[in-house]
Amino acid sequence: MPRKIALVGIGKIARDSHVPALQASPDWDLVATVSRSGKVEGVEAHDDFDAFLAARPDIGAISLCLPPQPRFDYAQKALSAGRHVMLEKPPGQTLAEVHALAALAATRGVTLYASWHSRMAAGVAAAKAWLAGRAVRGGRIIWKEDVRKWHPGQDWVFEPGGMGVMDPGINALSILTEILPEPVHLTAATLEFPENRHTPIAATLDFTGNLRAEFDWRQEGPQRWDIEIDTPQARIALRDGGARLEIDGAAQALDEGPGEYPALYARMADLVARGDSEVDLAPMVHVADAMTLGRRIAVAPFAF
């Protein structure tokens, strides 16, 4: 029988990705939501998380789709109540928060899954397999999108803890840390902060191994999510956020699989069944390092 799960935070990412994945999942039965205003048709709705936990002890798993700022408190309450928890990316505001949640999950004997949806893109596993054992000579990430399209009116992304352009940029970093045969670390960064905002709208990150990432949230027209890695044998490229794979410009055949979010929920089901947790913070470490090493540049004010 599918396990009962509740979805907390019914915003754009929940409606666009989580709800369809859960409705199609053979592993999960979406039986409740918790949100101040959002609802899913045909699903029991709550607006108070504490009251929900008390009223529905039969729901053993909770997926948190809230912005990162309030997520720790919700996750802490859920884990303390003995519920398995899946975290939308990024898993928290800070590394310390997520370390604390991982320790709590271990103490309570429940699963904590810090999910990275871009790692489930169709080309990522194939790119990782191709790069295994090969030397990396360098590479570049170009991750440029329009914040007005993907986060319309969502001011939380520019508040402390919202990460700014690092919110999409961490998707690229989740792929990079998954596919590289050897780890890299940040050496320098430039962060562009709108004069009226607390988080960056653009960033350039330099890593060991001659790798550079360029993130920008001011992209108009075609959106771009590309990762290119140079090796002595060839250049491998992931396009469209990892959906397409090229080797020296030639498109590679891929197993499309179930899709990013269905794959996340299948992984969550497997972790719960085995009694394991998965909390890989490598992408978030690079973001934290960028905030530490970054040279700050003030740019024009931003308004939605």
Rank of each mutant, 00 (worst) to 15 (best):
L173F: 13
F193D: 02
Q23P: 09
L173A: 08
I142E: 07
W130Q: 08
L293P: 05
D226Y: 12
S174G: 13
H18F: 14
R134V: 12
M163Y: 15
H286D: 12
A251F: 03
P232T: 09
I201K: 03
G249D: 12
A282D: 10
D255Q: 14
P262S: 08
G249M: 13
Q93V: 02
R267I: 12
G162V: 10
W116C: 06
W130I: 09
G162D: 09
I201E: 01
V85D: 02
S277H: 11
E246Q: 09
G221I: 10
P301L: 00
E41V: 12
F304G: 04
L238Q: 00
V287S: 05
Y265G: 00
G139N: 03
V110P: 00
P57E: 15
G209Y: 05
D289K: 11
L79A: 01
H46G: 06
H18L: 14
P57W: 15
R148F: 06
G60V: 04
L87I: 04
M1A: 15
L176C: 05
A298G: 12
R36G: 14
A81L: 04
K4E: 12
P160Q: 12
P68C: 14
G162M: 05
P152M: 15
L87T: 00
H151Q: 13
R15A: 15
V184L: 03
Q69T: 10
P168M: 15
W28R: 05
T94R: 08
S37T: 15
L186K: 00
R137S: 10
L238W: 00
D29I: 06
A122G: 07
E145S: 14
R137I: 08
P183C: 10
L238N: 03
R36L: 14
A6P: 00
Q93A: 05
F158L: 13
F72H: 05
D270A: 08
D240I: 05
K39V: 10
A298M: 09
D146R: 04
D270Y: 01
L264W: 05
I179C: 09
D155K: 14
R134C: 11
F72Q: 01
L7K: 01
V285P: 01
A14H: 01
R267T: 11
A105Q: 00
D280E: 06
Q93C: 06
W217T: 03
P70N: 08
V40P: 11
A263W: 07
P181H: 10
A96K: 10
A243Q: 08
A106C: 09
L271G: 02
I227S: 04
G221L: 12
C65R: 09
Y265I: 01
E97C: 07
P258K: 09
Q252R: 14
E278Y: 14
A106F: 07
L95P: 02
W143K: 02
L95A: 07
A55F: 12
D226S: 04
D58M: 09
I13H: 10
D270V: 02
V43K: 00
E145V: 05
W217L: 09
E192F: 03
G139F: 01
V124C: 03
P168R: 14
T208P: 04
S174W: 03
N196P: 06
W116S: 01
E256Y: 11
I297Q: 07
T231Q: 06
L7C: 01
F207D: 04
